[in-house]
Design a binder for these strands. Structure first.
Lengths: 198, 198
DNA sequence: CCTACCGATCGGTAGG
DNA sequence: CCTACCGATCGGTAGG
């Protein structure tokens, strides 16, 4: 359907050029129609934007919860590393989607700033709820040191945010090295006192 | 001088709206002249852009090296924490400058992508050279564990990059909590085996 | 889904 | 440093 094709191409355009930088005439030419015809599927540019955002958001939330359920049986160290791999995998496989979030997180179009922020905090909250349970379980079983819950969450979030931006400015080889380095170091920060990383 | 005033206002505009989003007529009105008059000081928009970038870059490099020299006498743990505080301080005090770098790092205007990347890698290299010496010294003195040099650098860079983006989407109180959390956790990752964080 | 058009605004220039 | 203007392009509409 044309409506879906518009959505797909719009995602790609918003991700690479931003909201203001994406033009409806380029969108139309990618879809294979004239600019005016876009308006028989969507009311205006803003409506296209929110359709793209909603669609991308649903996709992320779904992926997040299935991804975290899959690794529930693993030890915390493996879950931690797996979580980083998952995020990295997302940057690589879903380049445009990830780039769209990066842009909308850091440089939201003035008019949509609040709406976007709400969506992002909602996402982080869902992510943190799952992570909290993970942390508590690992502390109780003695897998990791008795770290304060918010402190542990903040650390993991910060690392993921850091990798999130670094992905876009290092080449693949350099980025991979950094991911591995950060995995090792982050795990050390959670290591129980006295125990040693192998 | 008008030329400097243009530079200052242009920095502010590029930071908040990006290169394409910043218009010369708004720049002119902030400076207090007509758009056409800008062209008696600069050849075109692109020349203004590079003047802004060069100026901001010089400022950063200068601040970096004096900042790191000031804390040479401190223990590694304090240097590490101080480094994070310095960066955070920079985000807060120099909001526009920091925002310009964020934008140009992650979403450089297509035409200037390569030129900007060169500047950024140059900066990181200078930063890492200083940091390497710091790390080596701390390892030799037994202050921290025998971590691989690149691994340690990658971790610190990742944390700073993470805080860099988080600053722009949390409020002050939440952000400060996260900084403190990350300080504690990062230090733990460097702790010598067997020693305990107080 | 198209042709033909709108007013507004963009970066930039001519000429003083 | 200004007035007056240029061609190009923007998001959007009328009417079929």
């Amino acid at each position: 359907m044309s409506k879906d094709k518009i959505l797909t191409e719009a995602l790609s355009l918003f991700a690479s050029r931003g909201y203001e930088g994406a033009t409806l005439s380029e969108l139309a030419s990618r879809v294979g129609m004239k600019k005016a015809s876009i308006y028989s599927h969507y009311k205006n540019k803003e409506e296209i934007f929110w359709a793209v955002i909603d669609c991308a958001y649903q996709e992320e939330i779904a992926k997040l919860s299935t991804g975290m359920k899959e690794v529930q049986h693993l030890a915390f160290r493996e879950r931690l590393h797996n979580m980083m791999d998952q995020h990295v995998h997302f940057y690589k496989e879903n380049d445009e989607n990830a780039n769209l979030w990066r842009r909308m997180t850091l440089f939201p179009p003035q008019d949509f700033k609040e709406g976007l922020k709400a969506k992002l905090l909602e996402y982080e909250q869902q992510f943190n709820e799952m992570l909290e349970q993970d942390l508590d379980r690992a502390i109780q079983s003695g897998e990791i040191r008795e770290v304060n819950r918010d402190t542990g969450l903040a650390m993991i979030n910060c690392i993921l945010d850091g990798l999130f931006v670094e992905y876009s400015y290092y080449d693949d080889e350099e980025f991979n090295k950094r991911v591995e380095a950060v995995k090792v170091m982050t795990w050390r920060a959670f290591l129980p006192a006295g125990k040693e990383a192998e």
